[in-house]
Write a protein that binds this DNA or RNA. Structure first.
Lengths: 195, 195
DNA sequence: AGACTATCTGAACAGACGTTCAGAAAAAAC
DNA sequence: GTTTTTTCTGAACGTCTGTTCAGATAGTCT
């Protein structure tokens, strides 16, 4: 027997990625087996290897896809305005984007150690690119005298770490709306960075 | 054959915990086997079970020990002064304490999902206790009119998330000394929280 | 209708997993 | 110097791991 009814490449591929994303986020890369992913998709373990050469690549492409989407999405954002409004735009964008895909965010931050050395370098480079987007804004703000930070590199990492924290506690339908969260964090960021 | 020369309970126990801490932090709980830990200690896997009933307990007691030490250490800190200097004390303490034990911190934040439900609740309760220490300072500061935060609960989590970020980039012998790092972060925290 | 291709099954591989335990040896107690 | 206790070994257990592949089937093309 082979091929249960109605199964296609175009649908199985995404379902594998979805299942892997969810399971990796929930239990961790090392704790999830290929057979678990396959069961979730409704397929035998061997079938996964039509879509990924191995488990490591599956993880890598999930991370790479996430980071690429993050950069592209920030690139699509309207860019004008002064440093301060750019910083606000970044803050709000970061919160919104990351709250929309908690699983991918979780994996991108937690499973770095499970990447092979080359894959690690690739992901780190994408992350640095994103960090540079924020640092550029901070540097410009400092040059223009609008912002005042002790150290733009550290301020960049501090802001991102603070914003990432939202993902650990925010739940849909909770006490605060997404917009309220954006406002609260933007006020803290603004005061921490403004002259 | 049994018992290689000079092996004692008093020394093997700590060495197991040390090895487990380092390996869990490096590769993740699920990716580390009991045999790997045993090899690191220089003992057969079976010997580990004289010191822990199972792998899960080993993880739990590492986390519990870390959180308990964190709370005790903060409790030992001199407590006086106004809200602002208490907030400064907390900021500096948090950075210093966490930079001294990066492996334990890593595990305490990353391996929560590998805890059994009861163990998870226990660790979460200790963490909440620590968060409450900070939130009390913020609340007092707001009441006294010294601090101004949009939401003390969120501010608490934001500050801790920001401070935890230090562990991701700080390296001994790097560009900045521990004290410089404390100063920089304290300035950001102060400005974000002060009226 | 027949040939071809894409997709999947099911079994197999060699090795690793957490955990248990009888027995051996070292250390401690007497 | 003998007994008792603590600590460890080494083998074994049943199960799971990532990955491969021949063969089977469903969909597509001519």
């Amino acid at each position: 027997m082979a091929r249960t009814q109605g199964s296609h490449s175009g649908i199985t591929g995404p379902r594998i990625r979805d299942a892997a994303l969810r399971l990796f986020a929930q239990h961790g890369f090392a704790a999830v087996s290929m057979r678990q992913i396959a069961r979730e998709v409704g397929v035998q373990a061997g079938a996964l290897y039509n879509y990924t050469p191995d488990k490591q690549s599956l993880l890598f492409h999930l991370m790479e896809g996430h980071m690429t989407e993050l950069l592209a999405s920030w690139g699509d954002q309207p860019g004008g305005g002064d440093s301060l409004s750019q910083l606000e735009a970044f803050t709000r964008f970061h919160i919104r984007f990351h709250l929309q895909r908690p699983d991918a965010v979780f994996i991108a931050y937690m499973e770095l150690r499970n990447l092979s050395p080359e894959n690690f370098i690739a992901i780190e480079s994408l992350r640095r690119e994103y960090e540079n987007a924020l640092e550029s804004i901070l540097k410009k703000g400092v040059t223009e005298g609008v912002l005042l930070v002790p150290d733009t590199k550290i301020a960049t990492l501090a802001v991102i770490a603070m914003l990432n924290g939202v993902n650990t506690w925010y739940r849909d339908g909770g006490r605060l709306s997404l917009d309220q969260v954006e406002v609260i964090y933007w006020e803290m960021v603004r005061r921490a960075m403004m002259v």
